[in-house]
Amino acid sequence: MEVNKEAILSKTHYGLNIYAYVLRQYYSGETEPGDSHTLNGEIRNSGQTVLSLSGRNCKPTKNPFNSDKSTLMVKVVDNCAVHTDCEKAIEDGNVFDFAALYFKLSGKELLDKLNEVLHLQIGEKNGFYNQDEVIFTELEPEIVKPKAPVFSYYKKPVTNVVPTKEITLIEVYNLIQGNEYASSTSTLRSIQDEKEARKYKAFNFDYVTFSGAFSKRNDKHLKKHSGLLTIDFDHISNISEIKEELLKDNYFETELLFTSPSGDGLKWIISMELTKVKHQDYFKAVANYIQHTYNLEVDGCGKDISRACFLPHDPNVFINPKYL
C-alpha cells in the first residue's frame, strides 16, 4: 500500500489520532505517552481523554498555536478530520495542515513522517512471514435513533419559575409547529411599542429552559443538564439567509432552529459537550466562533444555564431529522 493521505486517514480514525499525537507533544502533563484509540466518541491516550466528539460536534480543546487557549475545535467531514480556531489564530484546515504546523514539513515528507511516528507501517510487510498487507473492510455500524434531550417546561407568565413538567425536544418541535401559539405570536408581532411588546411577551408565552431540567428556574436549582445550548440572534434582517447558513455550519450540528416570537430573530439550539468544559466557557467559545464566522453578535444571556426561551408559532421550525 502506498503512503498517501487516504491510507493514513484509514489508519488514524480519519486523522483524529494525528491531532491527539500533536496535542500530546505540547500537553504531556495532561496526556501521557501511549497509543491513541477511540472509545465512545472520545480519543483517549493511556486512558485520558484528549479529544471528545459528540455527533458532528466537539468540545473546544487547547490550541498550542493560540497561547494554549481552549479555542480549537475538531470534527470529521467527508471522512477527514478538520479544524477551526474560534479566534482564527490559525487558518481553518484539515489534519495534515495541523500536522504541518508542528512538524514543519509538507508533501511526501510529512506523510512519511506521520507513517513513522505513528507506527502505521503503511507500505511495509507485516507478520512473521512478511505476508502482504491485508485490508479489512469495516462492517456498517447499526444506526441507533438517539434519545431526544429532556428539559423543563413552564406555563406563562415568565414570573412563574416553577416548571410544569419536563418535556422533550420533539414535543417542543410539535408545539412550535402547531397552532397553540399562533394567536399570541401574531398579536405580539402587531404591537408597535417596544415596551408594550416586551410586557405582552412576558405574560402571554409559555417557555422552556433548553439547557436543563430544574426544580426551580435558577442555575443553583439545576437537576440535570440536557446537553443543549441556546444561541439567540436578535434584530437580524436576513433571517432566511442566516438560517440556511446555520443549518450548513461545518462545526455545530443544529438540534432545533426557529424564528423568535418577535419575528426578527432566530433561536439556534445546538448540542454541547460538557465532559471537561463548563457551560459558560462553551458558550463563550461558540459566541467567538459565530462572531468570526458570520459577523453576528450573540445575546450574552445564553451563558446562563437557566436561560428562559419563549415558545412561538413557527410552521417552518427545523428539528434534526435524527430524532424523527
Rank of each mutant, 00 (worst) to 15 (best):
Y14L: 05
E140P: 04
V74K: 00
A148M: 01
D68N: 13
A99H: 01
Y21L: 05
S152R: 02
H119N: 10
T137Y: 10
D78C: 10
F96A: 03
L39R: 08
D35Y: 09
Y27H: 09
T61P: 05
Y14W: 11
G47R: 02
S106A: 12
Y26F: 14
G55D: 04
G41A: 03
G93F: 02
K145F: 08
N79I: 08
E91N: 12
K75P: 06
M73A: 09
D112A: 07
E32S: 14
F151Y: 07
C58P: 05
I43E: 03
A81E: 07
K88R: 13
N130Q: 12
L72T: 04
L110Q: 04
S28Q: 15
S54E: 11
E116Q: 14
V76E: 08
I122S: 07
S52M: 03
F151Q: 02
G107K: 08
P157H: 01
E30Q: 10
Y153G: 06
A148L: 00
F103E: 04
F96M: 03
S28R: 15
S10D: 14
N94G: 03
N130D: 14
L101Y: 09
A89R: 03
S67A: 15
T137F: 10
T49N: 01
Y154W: 08
L53S: 03
G107S: 06
M73I: 15
K156V: 06
E124R: 11
Q131M: 11
Y129K: 13
D68W: 08
K113A: 09
N94C: 01
L101H: 08
S46K: 06
P157N: 01
N66D: 12
V144K: 10
S70Q: 11
V144W: 01
L16T: 02
L105K: 14
D85C: 05
C86Y: 02
K75Q: 11
L105N: 06
Q121N: 15
I143W: 07
A89Q: 02
N45A: 10
L111Q: 07
K125Y: 14
I122A: 03
V50T: 01
K69L: 10
V150W: 06
Q121D: 15
A89W: 02
R56D: 11
S106T: 13
N66F: 00
Q25F: 07
A81K: 04
E109R: 13
K75S: 15
V77G: 08
V134P: 00
E133Q: 15
K59M: 15
F98I: 05
Y129A: 14
P157S: 00
V150E: 14
V22S: 06
H37N: 13
P141Q: 10
Y27F: 13
Q121Y: 15
Q25P: 07
E133D: 15
Y14R: 12
V50H: 00
V95H: 01
E116Y: 09
F98A: 02
I90T: 11
S52T: 07
S46A: 13
R56G: 13
V77T: 12
N130W: 08
V74G: 00
D132T: 11
D112R: 09
S36C: 08
K75L: 09
G93N: 03
L72H: 00
P33W: 01
T71Y: 05
Y14T: 11
K88D: 10
G41S: 05
I90C: 05
E30Y: 07
L16D: 04
L120N: 01
P149Y: 04
Y14H: 14
V144L: 08
V134Y: 04
Y153M: 00
I18K: 00
A148T: 03
I43D: 00
P33V: 02
K59I: 13
R24E: 10
G15Y: 00
